[in-house]
């Protein structure tokens, strides 16, 4: 193209510090972060308590469950698929670990719960990866099936841990480490590990390739099915981690505790800027997306709005965020479709 030739030929020239192009570029790449920062500043001015260390650590703890799941789902989405079964799986895993806790002790309960969650991940992975079925429908079916399994397992009863004080299981949901809540550690720890996996390993590269163009990936010798399968295992693993946090925090579980999580998680992932088309996105983006959701909720509550006000704000914010992204790629605000 003509442009590239010019770029290659022209020697480096000092540009003025601020140009229109630079501003546009900054808005395009860091638009969400800038909006996030402005939004934090606005809330801080409106409410004294908002910017306090206490409040921030509260938000970080509150978003830990959604965040932990979202980190796993991000990898599935980058791989070009969806996982709507995480909400049901969260219910199932939490009920399972809480119920088994009193029967066989916390250690074995956690182990069995992880095995069960990974088995669900395997089923998703087999159906989407190896049988190549549409991920939205498969995980929609799994959403329904796991919800049923949870109810069958619990007989429709909610479950509780009898001795809430005398178990180390409380550590995951209620304790602090170096002044930071354990759920926050789990969330951010998983985020860091999976970010490294995604950016520094061959597996991560394959996830991007498979999500970007599954056919080309296969023609390049990438074993697509295995990669997709693994993304579902990761998602199930993260959901199991979230179940430990949730079960430990509540010390009990309702049958439908995870209902609706799949879509809130997806909202966080999308808000962060990971494309549902696959092949692009990142874990840090998702962390930011989840934090924005958390701070919106927290800020509005502090300002005295009812809890459902956050849903209205989320409606607007999520569409604006994705619109900004789409519009910058398109180079114009609106589509030209007639």
């Amino acid at each position: 193209m003509a442009k590239t030739d010019v770029e290659l030929a022209v020697p480096v020239r000092r540009d003025p510090w601020i140009t229109r192009d630079k501003v546009v570029h900054l808005l395009q790449t860091k638009g969400l972060l800038i909006a996030f920062a402005l939004f934090l500043v606005a809330f801080s001015l409106a409410s004294d308590r908002f910017a306090s260390v206490d409040n921030i650590s509260t938000v970080l703890r509150q978003v830990a469950i959604v965040g932990t799941i979202a980190v796993g789902v991000t990898i599935v989405v980058i791989g070009g698929n969806l996982d709507l079964s995480v909400g049901s799986l969260l219910s199932f895993s939490t009920v399972l670990v809480v119920d088994l806790h009193d029967k066989i002790g916390p250690g074995p309960a956690i182990l069995i719960m992880f095995a069960a969650a990974l088995a669900v991940g395997c089923v998703n992975g087999l159906l989407v990866g190896f049988a190549r079925l549409n991920s939205l429908i498969v995980t929609l079916g799994m959403l329904s099936a796991i919800q049923g399994l949870t109810l069958i397992y619990s007989g429709g009863q909610n479950v509780d841990i009898a001795d809430q004080e005398g178990t180390w299981f409380a550590f995951f949901g209620r304790d602090f480490l170096l002044g930071v809540a354990v759920p926050t550690w789990i969330f951010l720890g998983l985020a860091v590990i999976l970010h490294v996996v995604l950016t520094r390993t061959t597996f991560g590269r394959k996830v991007f390739a498979v999500g970007g163009n599954p056919t080309a990936a296969a023609f390049s010798g990438v074993r697509r099915a295995r990669v997709v399968f693994s993304t579902y295992l990761i998602s199930a693993f993260c959901t199991a981690c979230a179940a430990v946090i949730l079960g430990s925090r509540v010390m009990g579980s309702q049958n439908n505790v995870g209902q609706g999580y799949e879509l809130v998680v997806l909202a966080g992932v999308i808000l962060g800027g990971t494309s549902l088309l696959g092949g692009s996105g990142s874990i840090p983006k998702t962390v930011v997306g989840v934090l924005i959701l958390g701070f919106i909720q927290n800020g509005l509550l502090l300002l005295g709005y009812p809890y459902y006000a956050q849903w209205l704000v989320t409606w607007v914010v999520i569409i604006l965020a994705v619109w900004l992204d789409v519009a910058s790629k398109r180079g114009r605000l609106f589509t030209t479709t007639s």
């Binding site: 991007f208 390739a209 970007g212 163009n213 056919t215 080309a216 990936a217 023609f219 092949g279 692009s280």
Partner: peptide
């Protein structure tokens, strides 16, 4: 475009 390259990469 369809088989050879991951276009966004």
């Amino acid at each position: 475009k369809e088989q050879g390259l991951v276009l966004g990469m």
